[in-house]
Write a protein that binds this DNA or RNA. Structure first.
Length: 295
DNA sequence: CACGATGTTCCCTG
DNA sequence: CCAGGGAACATCGT
């Protein structure tokens, strides 16, 4: 499910339920594939993670694209006093976070349950394409997996020139595939990419090199930022109250509500939408406004 | 029963 | 080493 706005929605759901609270107990279910390679990266593996989390205070949280993390201050007697614990969560395809009542009983595919006095925080992932990481370090440091992150889409370093150079470098790849590259466009996923290309009137199969002009890159850059702002506002309730769930009302003027509909129509032209696999993913576009011939 | 799903990573080829 | 394409991962819902 999750692209950058959904990721921030889930982060907020945990944070608003348990910010600055202390973990009473932690249940970690290592059979879940989300802990693949965990033991290699965290001394003591999932057992040590559960032990460190128990008695720790949730002190911070953040996202970067599809990455999200929670920072804990471990309780006394757990490691060095000045160390903090970073818990990184990637939701993969089907991962989600919930805040349940304190007496919540584990369900199928629950990978993590953190019990606090007022809530139980749950990470559940049926397909287990998600991933959990953890790291202990001094307060001023950062886990290796949070170093050297790409520029966030709404940061000032994310420029039209950056978009242009990425398109030039991957000149022969379909534009859709380039937009899905997390090392350049952190947080963009399948629906956002389709939404961006549709709004910018660019065909998903357009070789990216043909978008590597100043004019097109500028338009693409502006559309990427606009879709990102819209998604964060509508889905994650940015700057407002957290929406109760992900079934928020998405305006029918977006492609979003039409891209999976049978016989779906382009909201702008009212002509039929097309679907095909491009860049390894099912893509939806409006042939009436997104043409391969002209960019 | 078959197909595909809002993702990432590894492997192969040129 | 790079760019690009395809398969694999695992489960569930239509």
């Amino acid at each position: 499910m999750p692209e950058l706005a959904e990721v921030d929605f889930f982060r907020r759901r945990w944070w608003e339920a348990a910010a600055r609270q202390t973990v009473l107990s932690a249940e970690i279910n290592p059979p879940s594939r989300v802990f693949r390679s965990f033991a290699k990266e965290f001394a003591g593996g999932t057992t040590a993670l559960a032990k460190t989390l128990s008695g720790a205070k949730l002190t911070d949280s953040a996202t970067h694209g599809k990455q999200m993390w929670f920072v804990f201050k471990p309780g006394a007697g757990n490691g060095k006093p000045k160390e903090l614990l970073w818990l990184g969560i990637h939701l993969g395809m089907t991962g989600h976070l919930r805040a349940e009542l304190p007496d919540y009983r584990a369900q199928k595919h629950d990978a993590i349950i953190l019990r606090f006095s007022k809530h139980a925080l749950v990470f559940n992932d049926a397909r287990q394409f998600g991933r959990v990481r953890a790291w202990l370090g001094a307060a001023k440091e950062r886990p290796p997996w949070l170093r050297d992150l790409p520029n966030e889409i709404l940061s000032s370093a994310f420029t039209p020139e950056l978009v242009r150079s990425v398109c030039a470098r991957h000149a022969r790849a379909p534009l859709k595939a380039v937009l899905l590259d997390q090392s350049y466009f952190p947080g963009i996923g399948n629906w956002m990419a389709d939404e961006i290309l549709w709004r910018a009137s660019l065909h998903p199969a357009l070789p990216a090199g043909r978008a590597a002009t100043q004019v097109i890159a500028k338009k693409l850059h502006a559309t990427i930022q606009q879709v990102t702002r819209d998604a964060l506002r509508v889905i994650a309730g940015q700057g407002k109250k957290l929406p109760p769930d992900l079934n928020v009302h998405i305006p029918d003027t977006w492609l979003f509500n039409h891209r999976w509909e049978k016989g779906g129509l382009c909201p702008k032209t009212k002509n039929p939408l097309h679907r095909a696999e491009i860049g390894g993913r099912t893509s939806c576009w409006s042939p009436a406004r997104q043409k391969l011939g002209q960019a």
